[in-house]
């Protein structure tokens, strides 16, 4: 496990709380603004940043992230831009993971991507459409460059699948709280606590819950049974609704501050 990522979870555990992980697509709405928005998240108490690598066919994402990703692509966000953003925000003190569909990584080169990400200061990669069965070279590359590889489990995962996925995973396990795509929801799925309990039986790794968490109250609730709370679409929506960058930065800071209180049980 990458030492910087493990220290995120150790710190949170020492403070008897869950870690807060915030997601935004890189390059949304453009390269420079994106860096400022990530800085705002870090400054407002987000423990780890999930830097989305924009992809043309985001089939696990709902409308908000689809829109943001297509803006990022139109703004010219390439894999090299994403790595540059990782480098800038890591320099600013962020613990940064990349979230990417598999094809851009395979196209960039598996070894090359792992190497460049590590040298940019990135700590790991979440791959929502890569299964452990297809991940042999990826496991070797991430091991070689000391970055974590995070796979997902879902409510439909059998116990056998959970064993397979958790044994291939390093860093933390990403538990998708619901059967569906990304997006804010009125309530977090009741499947989440049960899934987390099943994952606990299989692994000692920290477990972070994502999909559908958008408010401080939801974060507080999820923090009771998980080690990490992942929030994405709510940040994206806050930016989409803002009239300019200054307003977007304020909205992101406010949301991050609220969520940060949520994972501390202070919502």
């Amino acid at each position: 496990m990458n030492p910087r990522l493990s220290s995120v979870f150790e710190t949170a555990r020492a403070e008897s709380r869950a870690a807060l992980i915030g997601y935004l697509p890189a390059g949304f709405p453009d390269h420079r603004s994106s860096v400022e928005l990530f800085h705002a998240m870090t400054d407002a108490g987000v423990d780890a940043i999930e830097v989305g690598l924009p992809y043309s066919d985001p089939l696990m994402d709902g409308p908000a992230i689809q829109e943001a990703v297509s803006m990022a692509l139109e703004a010219g966000t390439t894999t090299d831009v994403v790595l540059d953003i990782v480098e800038q925000i890591s320099g600013h003190g962020a613990t940064a993971l990349v979230m990417s569909y598999w094809n851009p990584i395979e196209r960039y080169g598996v070894q090359r991507f792992a190497e460049r990400l590590a040298s940019a200061g990135g700590v790991g990669v979440i791959t929502p459409d890569l299964t452990p069965e297809e991940a042999g070279p990826w496991s070797a590359a991430t091991d070689a460059f000391g970055i974590d590889r995070v796979f997902l489990v879902a409510p439909s995962s059998t116990q056998v699948r959970i064993d397979t996925v958790t044994s291939a995973t390093t860093g933390f396990v990403y538990a998708a709280s619901t059967m569906g795509v990304t997006g804010a929801r009125g309530q977090v799925s009741s499947a989440a606590p049960e899934l987390v309990a099943r994952v606990r039986e299989a692994t000692k790794l920290p477990i972070a819950v994502g999909l559908g968490v958008s408010t401080a109250a939801q974060a507080q609730d999820v923090a009771r049974y998980s080690d990490g709370v992942i929030v994405g679409s709510a940040f994206v929506n806050a930016i989409l609704e803002a009239t300019d960058l200054a307003a977007a930065l304020r909205a992101v800071s406010k949301l991050a501050t609220e969520l940060s209180a949520g994972v501390r049980g202070e919502a």
Partner: peptide, 24 residues
Amino acid sequence: EIDAAAEALPGHFGPYGGRFVPEA
């Protein structure tokens, strides 16, 4: 950079095919 072990699994045609889907 292709998983040679995966090629032997069902659902593969040489290095092609496989399953690249959300765990759900």
